[in-house]
Protein backbone atom coordinates (compact mmCIF):
# COMPACT_ATOMS: atom_id res chain seq x y z
CA UNK A 1 0.00 0.00 0.00
CA UNK A 2 1.00 3.63 -0.34
CA UNK A 3 2.33 5.82 2.45
CA UNK A 4 0.36 8.32 4.51
CA UNK A 5 1.03 12.04 4.50
CA UNK A 6 2.19 11.60 8.09
CA UNK A 7 4.47 8.68 8.99
CA UNK A 8 2.66 8.34 12.31
CA UNK A 9 -0.53 7.28 10.49
CA UNK A 10 1.16 4.63 8.31
CA UNK A 11 0.50 1.64 10.52
CA UNK A 12 -3.24 2.19 11.02
CA UNK A 13 -3.62 3.30 7.39
CA UNK A 14 -2.11 0.01 6.20
CA UNK A 15 -4.56 -1.96 8.33
CA UNK A 16 -7.49 0.10 7.11
CA UNK A 17 -6.47 -0.12 3.42
CA UNK A 18 -6.11 -3.90 3.67
CA UNK A 19 -9.51 -4.19 5.32
CA UNK A 20 -11.14 -1.95 2.72
CA UNK A 21 -9.64 -3.79 -0.24
CA UNK A 22 -10.95 -7.10 1.07
CA UNK A 23 -14.41 -5.61 1.62
CA UNK A 24 -14.39 -3.98 -1.82
CA UNK A 25 -13.43 -7.09 -3.76
CA UNK A 26 -15.29 -9.71 -1.72
CA UNK A 27 -18.44 -7.85 -0.72
CA UNK A 28 -19.04 -4.55 -2.46
CA UNK A 29 -18.38 -5.76 -6.02
CA UNK A 30 -20.58 -8.78 -5.33
CA UNK A 31 -23.43 -6.54 -4.27
CA UNK A 32 -23.37 -7.12 -0.52
CA UNK A 33 -22.38 -4.84 2.35
CA UNK A 34 -22.68 -1.15 3.02
CA UNK A 35 -19.78 1.05 3.98
CA UNK A 36 -21.34 2.86 6.90
CA UNK A 37 -21.58 -0.11 9.18
CA UNK A 38 -18.97 -2.54 8.02
CA UNK A 39 -16.01 -4.33 9.51
CA UNK A 40 -13.56 -1.56 8.58
CA UNK A 41 -15.31 1.41 10.19
CA UNK A 42 -13.51 1.18 13.57
CA UNK A 43 -10.16 1.13 11.75
CA UNK A 44 -11.21 4.06 9.60
CA UNK A 45 -12.13 6.10 12.67
CA UNK A 46 -8.73 5.47 14.21
CA UNK A 47 -6.90 6.31 10.96
CA UNK A 48 -9.00 9.43 10.43
CA UNK A 49 -8.22 10.78 13.89
CA UNK A 50 -4.52 10.53 13.11
CA UNK A 51 -4.96 12.03 9.65
CA UNK A 52 -7.11 14.99 10.74
CA UNK A 53 -4.34 16.05 13.11
CA UNK A 54 -1.78 15.87 10.30
CA UNK A 55 -4.03 17.91 7.96
CA UNK A 56 -4.53 20.62 10.57
CA UNK A 57 -0.81 20.89 11.31
CA UNK A 58 -0.10 21.46 7.63
CA UNK A 59 -3.01 23.82 6.97
CA UNK A 60 -4.49 21.42 4.41
CA UNK A 61 -7.86 21.26 6.21
CA UNK A 62 -8.69 24.81 5.04
CA UNK A 63 -7.72 24.06 1.43
CA UNK A 64 -9.94 20.98 1.52
CA UNK A 65 -12.97 22.99 2.58
CA UNK A 66 -12.68 25.19 -0.52
CA UNK A 67 -12.06 22.26 -2.84
CA UNK A 68 -15.11 20.40 -1.49
CA UNK A 69 -17.26 23.44 -2.16
CA UNK A 70 -16.03 23.44 -5.78
CA UNK A 71 -16.74 19.73 -6.14
CA UNK A 72 -20.47 19.98 -5.45
CA UNK A 73 -21.33 20.03 -9.15
CA UNK A 74 -19.47 16.76 -9.63
CA UNK A 75 -21.40 15.20 -6.76
CA UNK A 76 -24.64 16.20 -8.40
CA UNK A 77 -23.52 14.80 -11.75
CA UNK A 78 -21.94 11.55 -10.61
CA UNK A 79 -24.10 10.59 -7.67
CA UNK A 80 -27.06 10.88 -10.01
CA UNK A 81 -29.16 12.78 -7.48
CA UNK A 82 -31.92 15.10 -8.48
CA UNK A 83 -31.55 18.55 -6.99
Amino acid sequence: MSQSLDKQCNEVKERYDTCFLKWYSEKYLRGTGTVDNNECSALFKEYNQCLQKALKERGIDKLLEDAREDNKENDAAFLGKKK
Binding site: S2, Y16, F20, Y24, G31, Y47, K81
Partner: peptide
Protein backbone atom coordinates in the same frame (compact mmCIF):
# COMPACT_ATOMS: atom_id res chain seq x y z
CA UNK B 1 3.09 10.22 -5.83
CA UNK B 2 4.47 10.00 -2.31
CA UNK B 3 1.30 9.57 -0.23
CA UNK B 4 -2.35 8.61 -0.71
CA UNK B 5 -4.79 9.16 2.15
CA UNK B 6 -8.47 8.35 2.35
CA UNK B 7 -10.41 11.31 3.75
CA UNK B 8 -13.96 9.99 3.59
CA UNK B 9 -15.93 7.09 2.20
CA UNK B 10 -19.63 6.29 1.93
CA UNK B 11 -22.11 4.23 -0.04
CA UNK B 12 -25.19 6.03 -1.30
CA UNK B 13 -28.16 4.00 -0.03
CA UNK B 14 -30.33 4.83 -3.08
CA UNK B 15 -27.89 4.17 -5.91
CA UNK B 16 -25.23 1.95 -4.28
CA UNK B 17 -22.57 4.36 -5.57
CA UNK B 18 -19.37 4.31 -3.52
CA UNK B 19 -18.02 7.83 -3.04
CA UNK B 20 -14.46 8.26 -1.80
CA UNK B 21 -12.34 11.33 -1.13
CA UNK B 22 -8.60 10.88 -1.22
CA UNK B 23 -5.74 13.27 -0.68
CA UNK B 24 -2.90 12.63 -3.10
CA UNK B 25 0.49 14.08 -2.17
Amino acid sequence: VVAVDTLSRSVDPDTGILRTERLIT
